[in-house]
């Protein structure tokens, strides 16, 4: 029985909630219990946004993540605010294109991915969240590229299939980084 408590944090507009949604849908594909809880408030655009995702083999009690096993930090304020509460032995994914500092935690696994730069280089400047997702998929046993492909195919409307290609490219780039 395992439970993963994931906290994703960044600026509004970086795709924090969407990244969480894809993770939650992947968990659903794998028949796991899952909860997705966004911060909501007046910070619709440009402010800070975060999102808690819990993935578990057993029913989920509180959907609120107070001690994440996994933090995805998409900007510096998020890293500073949340790195202390990551559980021992947990994971921190850091967009190193935007965050030049290193995590001060030595008891966690930190992954540095210049996600924003990779996304810009690919020609998809808005898809840094998907680049990070690629790396997350690589580091989580349960996930693989097939799962995310299946999820994206159902999440992205048929009319916007060019988006599917772009998302998969960004994810693959992160996965292979």
């Amino acid at each position: 029985m395992s439970t993963d408590k994931i906290l994703i944090a960044g600026f509004g507009g970086q795709g924090v909630l969407f990244l969480g949604k894809i993770l939650a849908n992947m968990a659903l594909q794998l028949d796991k219990e899952v909860s997705w809880l966004p911060s909501y408030g007046p910070e619709m655009r440009g402010g800070t946004a975060n999102c808690s995702v819990i993935i578990s083999d057993s029913p989920i009690g509180s959907p609120i993540v107070t001690e994440p096993d996994c933090l995805i930090a998409m900007n510096l304020p998020s890293l500073l605010k949340y790195e202390d509460i990551v559980s021992k032995g947990g994971k921190i994914f850091i967009d190193s294109a935007l965050i030049t500092e290193k995590s001060k935690r030595e008891d966690v696994n930190a992954y540095y991915i210049p996600a924003t730069k990779i996304a810009i280089d690919l020609g998809y400047p808005k898809l840094s969240n998907m680049v990070l997702l690629g790396k997350i998929i690589k580091e989580f046993e349960d996930f693989n590229l097939d799962t995310v492909k299946a999820v994206l195919e159902t999440t992205i409307p048929p009319k916007k299939q060019d988006l599917l290609k772009a998302n998969l490219e960004a994810i693959t780039a992160g996965y292979n980084y």
Partner: peptide, 10 residues
């Protein structure tokens, strides 16, 4: 409440 309204679950 706001949490239940905003959260997603299967």
């Amino acid at each position: 409440d706001g949490t239940l309204g905003q959260m997603m679950e299967p």
